[in-house]
Amino acid sequence: MTALLDVRDLKTHFFTRDGIAKAVDGVTFSVERGEILGLVGESGSGKSVTGFSLLGLVDPPGKVVSGEIVFDGADLVAGGEEAIRGLRGKRIAMIFQDPMMTLNPVLKIETQMVETVLAHADVSRTEALTRCREALLRVGISAPDERLASYPHQFSGGMRQRVAIAIALLHEPDLIIADEPTTALDVTIQAQILAEVQKLCAETGTALIWITHDLAVVSGLADRLAVMYAGRIVEEGPTSEIIANPLHPYTRGLIESVPHGKPHRSLLQQIKGMAPSLLNLPEGCSFRPRCPRADDACRRAQTLGTPLPGRHVRCVHPYIEG
């Protein structure tokens, strides 16, 4: 069986006045049907841009310059805008980071939901409304009729994110791209939304790409992880294996900076230095200046190797025992 989504050597560059920012520079990964992939990285690592590239929603001056995005057998990069537009909202949906900003403030929830139904399904308005009501109930919003007649500003953040999820689920898509959907929410609401999304995806067999900087959130959710640094995937593999035994020094640094399970008052390990500017990346491995294991071998261009079965890592000195 071929993968639902196969991304090969994707490059999305931003053509700015100061030069070309290679926000996504040769990213390769795949997602199986029903699988949950966690795309992890710190701010500016290119994880969100990867998500937007999949839907063809990169704003100028950004542009997908090369690579393949094969979704269910069709290449979306070669197909251009035409190929992607029919899939957006129908087979690939997206949930955004800030629920306060994703719903249009001057349109009723009803308008924003019904238009989504009518964009892809040839049904009457009444039928569309019925589907909207069902979708709202499914994400745990009671009294859907009342909610449909409301405007976004009458909702709390968690409620708005539920509405956004309901909209994403309207056409039971094959793939949902979730771009840090819980970052802007309270911890309690975060847990609810996480559980909700996990349940809904399992029910409908929807694959999920969960973009986040929070390893703690994604480690309990994702089947596989892909760790991004400076526009490239540096490590990829099954979640449990990566968490238990990170191979890349960057991944190890990320895991050590999560406060879970540490003795009280012990100092947190942090990764030294800052993420490099995308306009001025170091040659060879971009993590080299911050890496404790770096030596001259790291100055050469790095390729993704497979030191252990099912584990991919872009490093010449991975943490392998023995």
Binding site: R88, M94, F96, Q97, D98, M101, T102, L103, N104, A119
Partner: peptide, 12 residues
């Protein structure tokens, strides 16, 4: 704005 991007992501 995000809501315009989200509207485009809905496929309208």
């Amino acid at each position: 704005q995000d809501y315009v991007k989200f509207a485009r992501a809905k496929g309208i």
